[in-house]
Amino acid sequence: MEIITLYCSVLLSILFLSTGLDKFLHFYKHVVSTRKYDLIPARFIKIVIALMGTLELYVSIGLLIKTWKESAGLVAIVLLIIYTYAMVHQMRKGSKNLNCGCGGLIGDQEITWKSIARNAVLIMGVVVTYIFPQEFMMNSILPTYLSSILIILITSISLKMIEFKKIENVK
């Protein structure tokens, strides 16, 4: 079982890293995509996307660190449930030609029941990493190094948000 847990942890970590980075590298693409869902008031969309991207980056690191595993697993499950709810909501409304807005390795595919099933499989993968022990997890100086990188990322994101606020005030 440990090899399955390892596989799920690494795969999910890479997946969340790619989607989290994509939210910052293609920020305005995600703003447009999220607006089309019509679930979040327009004034909060940029903050929500920055928060989602930050949480996805946290999950990508946390799934590989023993002391962060539980919180990262919970965050991953909550994010995936939120994303899945939004897709199901749009499917039930009959929305056409709406992409998932996932980005990263998943890409930006049109929402279908297959994308909802994919999220269900991802949730099961997180549950596997959350439930079963992983002896391989990093316990050395690496968590300190990674947490430093996370703090730098969060600081950079905060500075970007301030920059976005200044741009909005100019308009």
Rank of each mutant, 00 (worst) to 15 (best):
I106M: 08
R35F: 04
A117P: 00
M137A: 14
L153P: 00
N169S: 14
G94M: 10
I157P: 04
T129L: 05
A86R: 06
S148Y: 04
T19N: 10
F27Q: 12
S156L: 15
M1I: 10
I81G: 07
E110C: 00
C102F: 02
G94L: 09
Q134G: 15
S148P: 00
S9D: 06
G62D: 04
S9R: 15
M138H: 10
K29V: 09
I14W: 09
N169R: 14
Y28R: 14
L63A: 08
D22C: 08
E56P: 05
R35W: 02
T67Q: 14
V31S: 04
N139I: 07
V75Q: 00
K23A: 10
G103N: 02
W113R: 11
N119L: 06
D108V: 05
W68K: 11
K66G: 13
E163V: 08
P133A: 04
H26F: 14
V75N: 00
E168N: 13
K93H: 05
G53R: 07
V10W: 07
S71T: 15
L146C: 13
V31C: 07
I123E: 03
D22A: 14
Q109G: 08
L142C: 05
S33P: 02
K46W: 03
N139G: 08
L25E: 04
L64T: 11
R35V: 03
K160R: 12
S148E: 01
L11E: 02
L79T: 01
I149E: 05
G125M: 15
L63S: 10
V126G: 01
V31A: 02
K46D: 12
N139S: 09
F16K: 02
I61G: 12
G94K: 09
A76T: 06
S18V: 05
K114D: 12
N99R: 06
L6D: 10
L105F: 11
E70P: 00
Y83P: 00
R118G: 00
E70R: 12
G101N: 01
K171P: 00
I141E: 05
L122K: 07
M161Q: 10
T144H: 09
Q109N: 13
M87D: 08
T67V: 13
L17Q: 02
E56R: 03
K96R: 15
A120G: 15
N169Y: 09
